[in-house]
Design a protein around this nucleic acid. Sequence first.
DNA 1: GAAAAGATTAAA
DNA 2: TTAATCTTTTCC
Length: 268
Amino acid sequence: MKRTRRFKRVASSKPNKPISTTTDSGHDSDTLTSRRSKSMTIRSSSPEPKINSVPNSVPSFDKVTIMPPQFFQVDALDLAPRLLGKLLRRDDVVLQITEVEAYRPNDSACHGRFGVTARTAPVFGKGGHAYVYLCYGLHTMLNVVADKEGVGAAVLVRSCAPVSGLKTIQQRRGQITEKPVLLTGPGKVGQALGISTDWSNHPLYTPDINGFCTGGLELLDGPEPEKILIGPRVGIEYALPEHANALWRFAVADTPWISAPKNTLRPP
DNA sequence: GAAAAGATTAAA
DNA sequence: TTAATCTTTTCC
């Protein structure tokens, strides 16, 4: 066990991070608990859930709609394409989801295939929570848990486009660029959001206190893409052919913010 | 208790 | 094309 030290290696461990008390590495379950405490009421189902007329501009935060829990309580195959265009927010960073993959029960590529374990427990939890795991020992992968409690289903967020907080994104990524290389790839999304596996099981439908950006992680409504592309999922060659070949990868069409490989994506 | 594999990325 | 890197899960 080499383990030089148990220092929480978080992607965004850059020294000049703007967050004050709630640092990435300082994030812990206590913080989660308090954040989750109910004393805050929000109308997650406002009369006008759609955000049209916001093509490029950033929607003002107090008009934003947080997706309600019931939005997530569907089959991962249904949830996945609906996540395209939606927004992930943490701090001043807002990312628009451009590419996802669905993972489902009885799916030989799904992390839930071994049943409930310490790592995968959130996958079997209530839809609308995050499932964050470490891949290849270094990349934090963000999934949106789907379906009802007890069902092992989730949607991996593979790529995003930046909406706001570009400087923070670049800082966390360690790259000063506006090109797709900034956010196309699941590990990059996790790094840009500055999350660690401690964020696994964090609810994405619970607003920050008073709706301000206090370090939470939320899924906000966003414009639906006009056209989408589908294809087989990436990096699951070990799975059974029927699952490896299933077209459960979804992407926004006509955007450069898509991860490789792109040549396996086709119109539905 | 040990070994293998992995929903990847960046650099050569 | 390949090294980096380490947790999770399985097997003995």
